[in-house]
Structures are given as structure tokens and as C-alpha cells.
């Protein structure tokens, strides 16, 4: 339950207007720091909900697939460039961001990750890696501003952020697949 408390604290910290404003002032920080931190806050808070509503998770997320599907859909939605614009200009979308990322991504991610099989995990990992590379190339190559609120240079920065993240995931997958841990542990 300690974790859930930390998650709540993190969530409240991110809600503070100056903090939100600072994080949203730089495009890559908006997408690659604020949003993942919101997910992490939800991830940490998940045990509270799991304990409080065990039936809900049992009924609706028995094998983990609905949960992970929800995670993927919401996450994909927040990768669309114009959703960031919407969040900055329309108050209700901003509110939806602060609700959806912790509670519709973070919480179900934690609940599902232990339930889903290795194949689904692989699909998720590989899918997101390809997506990251794709988004990276899109943001780097596209010659026009995709967001009204951010300059072209910030877009290119975000693109390189996606590419480096994708490279890190590839290194991790390589480490995971090709290293024989049984030799060492």
C-alpha cells in the first residue's frame, strides 16, 4: 500500500499547475516525461484498486487481454500529435489526459502484465518498438509543424527521442533474448 501512496503523491505533484505547465512547455518533455510519469503514477496506485475492487478486475480483466487492449488504445491515442495540441487548448481534453493515463493505462497495465502470456508480451514489445521507430522517423522527417503549440525543432527533438527510446528497447530485447541468464543465476 506504500506504493499506492507514492503513486498518489506523484499524481498530485504532476497535477500542480506550475509543474504541469513546465512539463508541457517542452514537447518531448510533455510526451516523454509527463505522460509516462502519469502512467507510472497509475501503475503504482494499481494495488489499491486491485484490493478495493477485486471483483471488477476478476470479471472484466480475467485473462489480462481487455486490460492490455485498453492500455494500447489509450496510449496510441496520446501518440497522435494533435492530441497534445488539444490537451493544451481544450481544458476537458487536458482533464481527460490526467485521468486516462494513470487510470486507463497505468492501472490496467499492472493488472494485465502478470496475467498475459509471453506471446502477448512479445507482440506488445515488438509492436511498440516498431511504432516508436515509425513515430521517430515521422517526427524527424516531416517538414511541417504537426502541432500548433510546438516549433518544428521541438518536433525533430521528439523524433530523436522516439528513435533513442526504440534503440534502448531493442538493446533490452536483445539482452533478454540472447543472453542466457541461466548461465549466471
Amino acid at each position: 500500500m506504500k506504493q499506492a501512496r507514492f503513486g498518489l503523491l506523484l499524481f498530485l505533484f504532476l497535477l500542480i499547475p506550475p509543474v504541469a505547465h513546465l512539463l508541457e512547455s517542452i514537447m518531448i518533455i510533455h510526451m516523454h516525461m509527463q505522460m509516462p510519469l502519469l502512467v507510472i503514477a497509475g501503475f503504482l496506485m494499481a494495488p489499491f484498486f486491485q484490493k478495493r475492487f477485486p471483483r471488477l478486475f476478476e470479471n472484466w480483466n480475467h485473462a489480462g487481454i481487455p486490460g492490455i487492449l485498453l492500455v494500447t488504445i489509450v496510449w496510441l491515442y496520446w501518440m497522435i500529435p494533435r492530441t497534445m495540441d488539444d490537451a493544451l487548448t481544450v481544458q476537458s481534453v487536458e482533464a481527460f489526459k490526467f485521468f486516462s493515463l494513470p487510470f486507463l493505462v497505468g492501472v490496467p497495465l499492472r493488472d494485465s502484465w502478470k496475467k498475459i502470456g509471453l506471446t502477448v508480451k512479445k507482440i506488445i514489445f515488438i509492436g511498440f518498438t516498431i511504432l516508436f521507430f515509425g513515430m521517430g522517423i515521422l517526427y524527424i522527417k516531416v517538414p511541417v509543424q504537426l502541432c500548433n503549440n510546438y516549433l518544428l525543432i521541438e518536433q525533430i527533438t521528439l523524433g530523436w527521442g522516439f528513435v533513442t527510446m526504440a534503440i534502448c528497447i531493442v538493446i533490452y530485447l536483445w539482452y533478454f533474448v540472447f543472453m542466457d541468464h541461466s548461465k549466471y543465476e
Binding site: H32, T157, W160, G161, T164, C168, I171
Partner: peptide, 30 residues
């Protein structure tokens, strides 16, 4: 035992490095 997973720590380190350096480097190069 997870403290021994150096590969994982290195990947996290690389993520943190890219978080730190992608912004200034792209800005300064482009």
C-alpha cells in the same frame, strides 16, 4: 537477485542519458 541484472541497469542508464541529452544535442546540431 535483481541487483545483479547489469544489462537492465545499462539500458535504464541509456534511457536516462537520452532523456538528458537528446534535447540539447538536437537543438545544438539542427
Amino acid at each position: 537477485m535483481w541487483t545483479e541484472r547489469w544489462g537492465l541497469w545499462i539500458v535504464i542508464m541509456l534511457v536516462v542519458i537520452s532523456m538528458g541529452y537528446v534535447i540539447p544535442l538536437v537543438e545544438l546540431i539542427v
